[in-house]
Computed example of a mutant assay.
Amino acid sequence: MFGAPSRERATSQIIKRQSIWTRLTHWVWVICLFFLLLTGLQIFNAHPSLYIGQQSGFEFSNSIFSMGAIRNPDGSISGITTIFGHRFDTTGVFGYSGPEGQERVRGFPAWATIPSYQDLGTGRVVHLFFGWVLVGTMFVWFVASLINGHLRRDIIPTGRDIRSLPSDVAAHARLKFPHTRHYNVLQKLSYGVVLLILFPLIVLTGLSMSPGMNAAWPWLIEIFGGRQTARTIHFITMALLVGFFIVHIAMVLLAGPLNTMRSMITGKYRIDPETEEGK
């Protein structure tokens, strides 16, 4: 491991893989999504339930997800998370959490929200600020990617990519991650779903919950089947983005974090010599 450089390392090549626009927008998105997630959970805590439809309330039975608390016969309090009518005890994490002796009823725990205390007004202000920064960055990325070919070359899969999908899945299952000049098909598919589907979806569902946007674009909320359905889709999309982030970090660690991080900071990336031919 610490001996003389191997033949592969001696003959490998360092290329410029990421443009300045890809790198800048990537890190701006990281910051935006961090604050959007934690302030979004703060906003959710103001009413920790999700519904399907236009309305919600005591006279409706359209709740599909909720966090709350119940008092037990012995006087203790338990946190309860309900999913499609099935109740789960989540005391200490969801529904009822806090330091010992200072527990309180709340959806997500204090460590998962910004601010940590309940402050809907601040949560909304910060959430909207980073939401618009996200939208602006998306626009910059899209225009730059059209001009420099990043969208065509690295995001949209080709027929050849689709044909290589089974072998690429098999290679990932064996934890083999070749370092090539271009993204593999799984990267293209996952980045394409995030950038071209999930990002626009979370923005549009967020806008559909704004009274101002409802007045300007009343058709927007109708597309999503009502305000409560839009809120639910917004929450689910957030959960999918969190799942993508977890998998993304795992893949970075498995594929070689130094090489991958260097490409997203400096743009330089070391590729395997045997993969360069024909690329």
Rank of each mutant, 00 (worst) to 15 (best):
T81S: 05
F245E: 07
W219S: 03
G212Y: 12
L196G: 04
Q228D: 08
M264I: 14
V247T: 13
L220Y: 09
R71F: 02
A255K: 05
V135H: 01
M238G: 12
M261K: 11
I202M: 12
A215D: 10
T91Y: 13
N259V: 05
P273D: 09
T180S: 07
G79D: 03
R87E: 12
P218T: 06
N259Q: 05
G278F: 04
A170Y: 05
S6D: 07
F44A: 00
F88Q: 10
F2N: 10
A216W: 14
N62R: 02
L198E: 09
Y117R: 05
L175D: 09
M138D: 07
N214K: 15
T266L: 00
L120E: 03
A112L: 06
Q42E: 14
D74I: 06
E103I: 06
S145D: 06
M138I: 13
R231S: 12
T275F: 03
E59R: 09
F177C: 01
N72H: 08
L189W: 03
S116M: 12
Y96G: 11
A255H: 09
F139I: 15
W21D: 02
L128F: 13
V126P: 01
T25Q: 09
V133K: 03
L36Q: 08
E274C: 01
D161C: 01
N259M: 02
I70S: 07
Q187R: 10
S19Y: 06
G57Y: 09
T205S: 06
E276L: 11
I70W: 06
L41G: 00
Q228K: 14
G136F: 04
L165V: 09
T237N: 05
M251A: 04
S66D: 11
P211W: 10
I265D: 02
P166A: 04
V185Q: 01
L128P: 00
K16C: 01
A250R: 12
E100Y: 15
S76E: 07
W132A: 00
F199I: 15
L240P: 00
I77R: 08
L38I: 13
G40P: 00
K279R: 15
I249E: 11
P73G: 10
G226I: 04
T260I: 12
F244K: 06
P115I: 08
R152T: 08
Q55V: 04
F244R: 08
L36R: 14
G121R: 14
T237F: 00
L36D: 01
V30F: 12
V169W: 11
